[in-house]
């Protein structure tokens, strides 16, 4: 029996802590606890109001069992159609613009000045949320689906260009170099050396973005940028929970079918 063994026998064993330094461990622990307490304390809740609302909450959940698609059918239909139109148009335009920007934002194929400009566009688009962009665009272009369309196109660019650029940056260099070595021009090189490698992922991401665009289009109406959101907001304001439930069910169904569709398309492309 070795001496080290004698030293540990009879000793209590404890799992080594995740954070080695004792003071840091305690600081983080106490700090998070204090934060949580402070956070909970500063939420003012009007419990009377919450209690009052429980009936309405129950009414809303019940409304899901008997959604009313009929009484506001034309509003729902118009709103949904407008949402879909915005989604389609914005996805097409957004994807079309994000491909050149994505190429420009990939360090391995773009020269530095273009790279910086494209990365700048991507950063701005990603930092501003859809709803804030929509508020500004509504202020500038007036109410209506044009503002929503522009918002979604702009958001698509930030999302898709960034992921496309990352994909290009991590692609297999050898394949691209082989095409370059054959004396291809820049466009030919992109077409033969780069495109085949990133295409499947681009298609997958685009489908995913269509899905996101539809979900976002459902809220743009809240600030007057068109789509189903306005109808939904009205339904909530009038406490017409059965209509609201109908709209939410429709949104969920459309998102589910989009996900299903994108699953099929992604499986076919790969």
């Amino acid at each position: 029996m070795s001496t080290e063994l004698d030293a540990v026998l009879g000793q209590r064993w404890k799992k080594p802590p995740l954070i080695k330094r004792r003071w840091l461990r305690w600081t983080i622990g106490i700090g998070s606890l204090a934060y949580l307490v402070a956070a909970f304390m500063t939420i003012d809740v009007n419990w009377a109001r919450v209690y009052e609302g429980l009936d309405r909450g129950a009414a809303f959940i019940l409304a899901f069992t008997s959604p009313d698609f009929v009484s506001r059918a034309s509003d729902i239909w118009e709103g949904l159609l407008e949402s879909i139109i915005m989604t389609v148009a914005a996805s097409v335009v957004g994807i079309a613009i994000s491909i050149p920007i994505g190429l420009g934002a990939a360090r391995n194929i773009a020269p530095l000045p273009i790279y910086l400009i494209c990365r700048g566009i991507v950063a701005i688009s990603r930092a501003l949320q859809e709803i804030i962009v929509a508020i500004l665009l509504v202020a500038i272009f007036g109410f209506g689906p044009l503002a929503g369309f522009l918002t979604l196109s702009f958001a698509t660019i930030g999302f898709l260009s960034k992921l496309l650029a990352e994909d290009i940056e991590s692609m297999d260099k050898v394949q691209a170099e082989a095409i370059k070595a054959s004396g291809a021009r820049w466009l030919q090189w992109i077409n033969y050396g780069v495109q085949p490698q990133v295409m499947p992922r681009l298609v997958g991401l685009s489908m995913y973005r269509v899905d996101i665009n539809f979900r976002e289009s459902a809220i743009l109406g809240l600030v007057g940028a068109g789509g189903i959101g306005a109808t939904l907001n009205t339904a909530f304001d009038r406490y017409e929970y059965d209509t609201a439930a109908a709209i939410l069910i429709l949104i969920i169904l459309i998102v589910m079918s989009l996900e299903y569709l994108s699953g099929i398309i992604r499986a076919r492309v790969q």
Partner: peptide, 26 residues
């Protein structure tokens, strides 16, 4: 909570020592 009885812990150390991995316990 990893609070095993002391005899289990001792046995674990003995076994690790037997296979030559006592220093690796943690």
């Amino acid at each position: 909570t990893r609070r095993y009885p002391q005899e289990s812990v001792d046995e674990a150390f003995r076994l690790l020592d037997r296979v030559g991995l006592l220093a690796m316990a943690d």
